[in-house]
Simulated scan of single mutants.
Amino acid sequence: MIKNRQTTISCIVVLVFGLSLFYIGTDGFTAYTAETARVTKLIENQPEFPDVTFEDSEGRKYSIDEFEGKYVFITFIYTGCTTICIKLEENMAQVYNQIPDEYIGKDIVFLSISFDPARDDPATLDKYKELFKSDGETWRMARIPDKKELDSLLGNFGVIVVPDGNGNFAHNSAFYLVNPQGTLVDVMDFSQVNEAADKLMNTLERDKGE
Rank of each mutant, 00 (worst) to 15 (best):
I2P: 00
A34I: 08
F54N: 06
D135R: 10
E48S: 15
D120L: 09
M141C: 06
F67C: 09
P117I: 08
S134P: 02
F132N: 05
V161M: 03
A170F: 05
M92Q: 08
K3V: 12
N166W: 02
T8H: 04
T124A: 12
C85Y: 03
I160C: 01
V109N: 14
E130R: 13
D126F: 13
G167Q: 06
D189A: 06
E55A: 10
A170K: 03
K87Y: 05
E205G: 01
Q46P: 06
K148V: 06
C85L: 04
N194I: 03
C85V: 03
M188C: 04
R38N: 10
W139Q: 07
Y23F: 15
K148R: 07
E210H: 12
G28P: 05
K3I: 10
G28R: 10
I2F: 12
V39N: 07
L111H: 07
T36R: 07
F132Y: 15
L131K: 14
R119Q: 10
R60L: 12
D146W: 09
K148H: 06
T7G: 00
S10G: 12
L131Y: 15
N91H: 15
T26F: 01
Y23M: 08
K87G: 09
N45A: 14
D27R: 10
K129E: 12
T82V: 06
L154K: 12
I12P: 07
N172K: 03
M201Q: 11
G209H: 13
F175S: 02
R143D: 06
F67N: 10
E137M: 09
G155V: 01
H171E: 03
N168S: 10
V16K: 08
Y176Q: 02
C81D: 04
D51W: 05
N97C: 02
Y176L: 11
I113G: 07
L21N: 11
P47Y: 10
V187G: 00
L177E: 01
N91C: 05
F115P: 09
A118P: 00
E137K: 15
V185N: 05
F17R: 02
D198W: 03
S20G: 15
K106Y: 06
R38V: 00
K41R: 14
G155A: 08
